[in-house]
Write a protein that binds this DNA or RNA. Structure first.
Lengths: 234, 234
DNA sequence: AATTGTGAATCTCTTCACAGCA
DNA sequence: TGCTGTGAAGAGATTCACAATT
């Protein structure tokens, strides 16, 4: 019991989990620039966050900072890598070798972060057998045995919307632990599998919503305020 | 004053704005399936949300539902399109014609949602002049006059991290209203420009964090619980 | 003097629970 | 009866503000 309490103070808030990769990214930049210590204030400002928030987030995992000094960049970076799991290599299966899948195979950011695409699947006869980086595109029919054999924990789902749920079911049956889903559907997946959704059109719609809203608000507020906006924009 | 109050009840919560595209997506599916009416419960379940949340979200924009019946799919869909701005076509500039940029130009989801890539820029001599779909890749040096001339409101930033801030500054100077940023940096951008960040490695890191955590928790909780987990997974 | 770690206050978001309508 | 719209309660996240530490 006592040892569990130390492992993780309380369940880590979702919002905190979402910021950890940003902290790590920034710490890696600082480290590359040879900076050895950073204050919560400096870290917060570079990420457009509040300094108290940075401190509070970090205390979920221990106490790393020194009052009057700040946080040791290298140590904190290593610690965050351990927490995020990027101190090991993660094998990833990619399903769907269309435009997006193609781009993801060659995406260099993954390699740098220790995500290694180890298998590529598609259902299209024309694509099966084609080279995908160092790999060969396999038939999605072989997905379950292949993923089981290689013990691949993560999958990227880059198939059309109407195929996504079926493939997701297969991934679950194959024992996958996490899915990064690019298909524009909300997947129905058991709780023990983690899903992270990225819908590119949703991202653009959020932009167009905010931009439309700004325009409406500016119009409603009358010309004086609109002038001010344009003034700042120019 | 009275008319302003009706325009928007209160500033729309961020969380609501993020769910609107999901509602629209689901309504479009329902409409395509010929379904004319949907209850908040049904809508919520298909998106893994709470029904009260769906109702409350929608009331920010008016009252559309009929007690005992539900919401009219077609009407609500049209209304949401108006709110999200997808009832018009949005011109988009793409900056960065690498792997990702390449995939985005041919991404069919954008067309369906009325986002039209109207200009593509890169700084690489080898890429400038090449065809990108119906377009030709232009020199990023011409970005400002081109975006101003075509009055393009949205930009997709798919350039390497070290170039992103500079390009973003140019986009702001060109008068862009919103940026979808794929570069792994937090951009420093004036408030009147909307930024939406999508970092693919961050997405995978969030997965690896949760999966690592599950493993740690399972180990800490002892074998009985671990067995239960595996049991559910099988 | 600078900066952390954190209780308390505040703000935001979600869910409950139910009156009222079709 | 089934379902909406919403006030009130509850949960969660952010920010403040300050004692404690280097």
């Amino acid at each position: 019991m006592a040892s569990m309490a130390r492992t993780i103070k309380t369940p880590v808030p979702k919002a905190v989990a979402h910021r950890l990769p940003l902290y790590l990214r920034r710490l890696e930049q600082l480290d590359a620039d040879g900076i050895q210590t950073v204050s919560s204030r400096a870290l917060a400002e570079s990420l457009s966050l509040n300094d108290a928030q940075v401190r509070k987030d970090l205390t979920y995992f221990g106490t790393f900072g020194r009052p009057g000094v700040g946080y040791p960049v290298r140590d904190l970076m290593d610690k965050l890598r351990g927490i995020l799991g990027t101190d090991r290599t993660w094998q990833v299966a990619l399903v769907g070798f269309g435009n997006l899948g193609h781009a993801l195979v060659s995406y260099r950011g993954f390699r740098r972060k220790a995500f290694q695409i180890e298998a590529v699947f598609d259902s299209d006869r024309a694509k099966i057998g084609r080279r995908a980086g160092d790999l060969v595109v396999q038939d999605v029919a072989d997905l379950i045995p292949q993923i089981r054999r290689l013990q691949i924990p993560l999958a990227i789902l880059a198939v059309p919307a109407d195929a996504a749920q079926n493939v997701a079911n297969e991934l679950v049956r194959a024992g996958i632990a996490g899915i990064l889903n690019f298909a524009p559907v909300v997947l129905d997946i058991p709780d023990h599998v983690i899903v992270n959704n990225v819908d590119l059109t949703v991202c653009l719609e959020q932009l167009s919503f905010h931009v439309s809203k700004r325009k409406r608000d500016a119009k409603a507020a009358g010309p004086e305020v609109r002038d001010t906006l344009y003034f700042r924009a120019g």
